[in-house]
């Protein structure tokens, strides 16, 4: 631990900016220099960010261990030549138990309602169904729309309609949503500007708008703006009628607006 070290006001400002995600390029450069040149500052930084991580873990639980089914199948068969089938089953069973444990801690029943379902209730599948109330709203958790459409309204008033197959995550933050796979449209009402979708590690930040978003299995993300504008991946601002994609290697490409490809939000 960083015994008796007191960060300077300047360093404190950098630490706060990191934890709030507000670090600008000048601050990034300054922090980088401090970390490289000042060992005590580096150790304090690690302790500070470790605490930040622990606070996230305490309030949100361990992030879900999300392994594709195909990989699980491969693992068991891959190990069968070396291990007994029994051990293979034991691993599979312990994995289910452990993953369930993580799911419970992330999406346990104490989480608050963050959205309501407009329609598609017969189509939504939840990774942890026990974490979802039977009536009255939706809690944070990871879900799928296997087919058709699923239509949600977040507590901040943002409406989202997803076209299955789609994979998403409701978060405890009132103005954020994670979209892992599929096609969706978001309609953001006045007052909810700043609504952010995280897709493929990129942030799509609403600036007062209606937009469509798709992400494929290769993590290629496309955004099309129907009304207003959005900030995409913290690098480009898209206006009405514009579309942009970013591939899995971080390269931008132009994408033509095809509004018919996106589901419509119905009243």
């Amino acid at each position: 631990m960083s015994d008796n070290y007191q960060p300077s006001p300047e360093f404190t400002e950098l630490l706060v900016a990191v934890t709030e995600g507000d670090l600008d390029s000048e601050q990034q450069s300054h922090l980088n220099q401090l970390i490289c040149e000042d060992e005590a500052a580096r150790h304090y930084y690690v302790d500070y960010l470790s605490l930040h991580a622990m606070l996230e873990l305490r309030h949100h639980g361990t992030p879900a261990v999300d392994l594709p089914l195909e990989a699980g199948t491969e693992l068991v068969s891959k190990h069968e030549s070396n291990w007994s089938t029994f051990i293979g089953f034991a691993i599979a069973a312990s994995l289910v138990i452990a993953v369930s444990y993580h799911m419970y801690h992330q999406y346990g029943p104490n989480r608050d309602v963050v959205a309501t379902l407009i329609d598609g209730d017969d189509r939504l599948q939840w990774e942890n169904p026990e974490g979802q109330p039977t009536t009255g709203g939706l809690r944070p958790g990871r879900g799928r729309v296997p087919g058709g459409t699923g239509h949600l309204e977040l507590s901040g008033g943002v409406r989202i309609v997803m076209l299955g197959p789609a994979d998403f995550e409701l978060l405890s933050e009132p103005n954020r949503f994670t979209f892992h796979r599929g096609v969706m449209r978001a309609v953001v009402p006045p007052g909810a500007e700043g609504f952010t979708v995280v897709a493929g590690g990129h942030e799509i930040v609403d600036l007062g708008t209606e937009f469509g978003l798709s992400i494929d299995k290769h993590n290629n993300v496309e955004v099309h703006v129907f009304k207003g504008s959005v900030r995409f991946a913290d690098r480009v601002t898209l206006k009405e009628g514009e579309g942009q994609g970013i591939d899995h290697e971080g390269q931008f490409y132009k994408s033509r607006l095809e509004e018919k490809n996106y589901p419509r939000v119905t009243d």
Partner: peptide, 28 residues
């Protein structure tokens, strides 16, 4: 066994990654 080791060390791995990227969503 390595599967259990992987699962039992998720908190440390999350802390490790968060200290390097700063942002929770990116760390996840």
């Amino acid at each position: 066994d390595p599967v259990q080791l992987m699962l039992s060390n998720q908190n440390r791995l999350f802390g490790f990654v968060l200290s390097l990227v700063g942002n929770r969503e990116q760390a996840k």
